[in-house]
Design a binder for these strands. Structure first.
Lengths: 194, 194
DNA sequence: AAAGGAGGTTAACCTAGATTAATGTCACTG
DNA sequence: CAGTGACATTAATCTAGGTTAACCTCCTTT
């Protein structure tokens, strides 16, 4: 397993001794998934928090009409799971599925609680990354409210160029909350405007 | 100052010794605001995380056209601040303004960092409440995407009956991302449907 | 009691984006 | 290289919700 990306990521926020890093790694599992496989399935309890080492995944749910809605994408150095399901250990609302072959580092619920005991600094680490995630999530709420689809698309493109290249457009449309047809119209408009 | 609501709230998540509670309270300030006063103003650095002891506040921002958009309301036992501004100590994007005379318990940035040193359990406390806030925020993103205005209004009413009574309708419309006229139309429809 | 001002409603008209369905493009597999 | 399946585009029509503006209630304040 390639633990370096995870350790490097954690070092951005807290300092761990070598011993602590060893304990940490002993309680994390690396897992490889193939394109199309599910890391979380709605209805199951989400057992892991997943740190993405390589690959690309989507988080989505299906509404009453069976429509798929993409909530987020995750690529290298992102976290993905159904956090609501994970923290309460109740059935998941979301699916997390691989769009490419992917490798993730998995923290199970029990191992993570254990780790909080063994390395209390990790409470701080997860608090800090959650703060950031929460702020980003709030920002997304606003931007959805007060922008047109075109503005949201432009912002998405500017903000996540790595993702736009790797993901088919109908999924980007789903992420933006518009139809693939309307996204197509927007793209056409933008070409004319140049 | 009435510290009981805050202590009771914290006790839901972690156990503090009497001594720890004393330290905590020594680093928190109670503050009373009048209706209309601002707890956070956009452009200023947000200095506090605020726990609401009594009253009602709104968090909003103004867009390019000067339109006000309400992001959340806060009542008793809720937290309010501009977290993005607070954690980075950079100018706030939001305003937090009192809709009623309100009392809040304020954690300043410095005191909170100090408290994390003195009572590491507080890292855990804030991690847990942030997890919950993040999950709620994500849920709101979804519900905004995949529901009509009518569904969102009904859900808001069911979920926050305490708030609907205390806040004028044009603010609820702003929170729901619709115009007050359209909300009025919806309310009319709902009366006919019964 | 008159005059504002804050909030709420109604109605006529307008627009962003959805829906449906046909057509196009490309990559693969047999 | 024909055929299939996955993805993208175009165009016609429809609808949720916005905009504008007039009007209606209550409270306050003088």
């Amino acid at each position: 397993m390639n633990a370096q990306p995870l350790l490097a990521y954690i070092r951005n926020y807290i300092d761990l001794t070598e011993e602590e890093e060893t304990i940490l790694l002993s309680r994390v599992n690396s897992r490889k998934y193939l394109k199309g496989q599910f890391v979380v399935q709605q209805g199951d309890v989400c057992r892991y928090e997943n740190f993405v080492v390589s690959g690309c995944l989507k988080t989505f749910y299906t509404d009453q009409e069976g429509q798929e809605h993409i909530v987020m994408f995750a690529v290298e150095n992102w976290w993905t799971s159904d956090l609501g399901s994970f923290i309460t250990q109740t059935p998941a609302y979301y699916n997390v599925q691989c769009l490419e072959n992917s490798e993730v580092m998995q923290f199970s619920y029990e191992n993570l609680e254990q780790l909080y005991q063994e390395i209390p600094k990790l409470e701080r680490f997860f608090r800090i990354i959650l703060q950031k995630a929460y702020v980003a999530s709030e920002k997304r709420i606003i931007q959805n409210f007060s922008s047109t689809a075109k503005e949201r698309y432009l912002r998405f493109r500017a903000q996540y160029p790595q993702i736009e290249q790797r993901v088919p457009q109908y999924m980007i449309a789903s992420y933006l909350g518009i139809t693939k047809e309307f996204l197509s119209k927007l793209r056409h408009q933008l070409i004319l405007e140049q």
